[in-house]
């Protein structure tokens, strides 16, 4: 089982990869409107990164309910515990 701190560290790496940056700082409130280039395509990349990293599959309902980084972290926490 992953702790919230570990999840945020992993998510930071995924976000850095997806946006080709090395300076992303993730907060639970961070959402698509705050990050340049975070469109629906990047959204799919982020979800894929998460799925590959944790060997989990997010279903349609879960994906639709994601509004911010905090939501994503809670889904991961729920699915890996």
């Amino acid at each position: 089982m992953s702790t919230t701190v570990e999840i945020y560290a992993a998510l930071t790496e995924i976000f850095n990869d997806v946006f080709n940056r090395d300076d992303m700082i993730l907060t639970p409130e961070l959402s698509a409107k705050d990050v340049k280039g975070w469109d629906s395509f990047k959204q799919i990349e982020i979800i894929l990164g998460v799925e590959e990293r944790y060997s989990i599959r997010l279903n349609t309902k879960e994906i639709d309910s994601l509004k911010c980084v905090g939501d994503l972290a809670s889904v991961i926490l729920k699915k890996t515990s």
Partner: peptide, 8 residues
């Protein structure tokens, strides 16, 4: 390379 690394 996985999907993410390929994109990077």
């Amino acid at each position: 390379l996985d999907f993410t690394k390929t994109g990077l």
